[in-house]
Every structure is written in structure tokens, then in C-alpha cells.
Amino acid sequence: MAARPVWESHAEVGSDASERGLGPRNPPGGGIGRGAKPPSEGIWRWGKWAIPLAVVPLLILLAYGFRTDPRAIPSPLVGRAAAPFSITLFSGGSLSLDELKGKVVVVNFWASWCYPACYEEAPGLERGWRAYRDRGVVVVGVDIQDTEEAARKFMRQFSLTFPNGPDPAGRISVDYGVYGVPETFFIDRSGRIRKKHVGAVTEAVFTGEVERLLKEPS
């Protein structure tokens, strides 16, 4: 028993060492470019170039990725009837979409914490509202995930006069598939969403859309 077991010098104590001999059977060294091998089969000779070529479609896909914006998610709502909502206005009273049938409605989702985009678009929206209110256009502001105090401060800062109200439970936001602020929806006179604009809405976009919708027969 004092004798050192033969297998102890080998790593695999648990393996079935006695079965077939110990350790690797292949002689050490060699291995590279030993001449005594069958010549390459034809398939391998050309087929091996498939390995690098397999990478190409992937590269194309990734290159395609540059052309897309992961943050631009197309809304399925464009072209469909706008979901009805009614909103309690900061100025008192309430407003529902149904009352606005026959008018072009611009619904703007905003928040006082949305800096800088909401701060950039607010003056333009107000100007647009003042310019078009007499031509059958209504701008409605929906303030989301905000405190009333901060929202009122925001409205004072930009002297907003168009109807504005909070969406305390997020129902309107979800009904309109809102995933960030600001987002603006343009609704035509028959009550269908015609365009969704993500990010600060410029006066050019506002005027362009509103003019287009006003030209359509109601």
C-alpha cells in the first residue's frame, strides 16, 4: 500500500483509467502539416470560402441598422378614428373630443419636465392656436405625468391660452399610444388621426398640417 498508485500522476482520477490506457493516446507534437493526409475533397476546396462569406449578410443587416432610428416607432393609429376623450381643463370646465366634431383638432401631449423640447414648441403652438382658432382649428394640450403646480407655471411662462388639462391616470396617453413627450396628433374634421408628430412641433409643420386638413371638405 505504501507504493504510489500508478495513476496518481494523471489528472483524471475519477475517470475510467483502466479501461483503455491512460491519458491521451496521440503522440505529442506533430499535428501541423503532417504530409501523410488525404488530399482535400473538392467540396472543401471551394466550400471553405463559405465561412468568410457567411459574415456578409450579417454585415449588410448591421449596415441597414444605420438607416433606421430605434426611437422612431410608427404609430398604428394614423388613419384611424381618434379615440374619444374628455379632459378636465386647468382653466376650469371640461372638454371632450366629441364636441369638436367638424373641426381640425391638434392634440399636443406635453409635460413641464420635458426640457427642452416642450419649451421649444410651446410658443409656436400658442401662435398657431391664435392664428387658426377662428378658422375651425382647436389646439388641445394634454399634460402628462406632471404636477398641477409645475404645469400651471409652464402655462404662465408661455401665456398659453388654448385648452389644457391633465391626464392623471394616463388613459388618454395610452389611448393615443404616446411613448414620450412631446407628441402631437393632427385630427381631421371627420375625427380621424392623420398625422403623429414626435418631438417638438415646429410652426412650419403645424401650419402645413393644419392648412392641409382645412382644405379637405368636411
Binding site: P5, V6, S18, G21, G23
Partner: peptide, 18 residues
């Protein structure tokens, strides 16, 4: 077929000790 790496005597000794 590759030659046995160890001879019969060693195999026997392993078997015995196992």
C-alpha cells in the same frame, strides 16, 4: 489502430490497485 500506450504488466498493476 494505435499501439497500446502501456504494457500489460502496468495494466495489471493498475487493475490490482484499483
Amino acid at each position: 489502430p494505435v499501439a497500446e500506450a502501456i504494457d500489460a504488466a502496468t495494466r495489471e498493476r493498475i487493475r490490482r490497485e484499483m
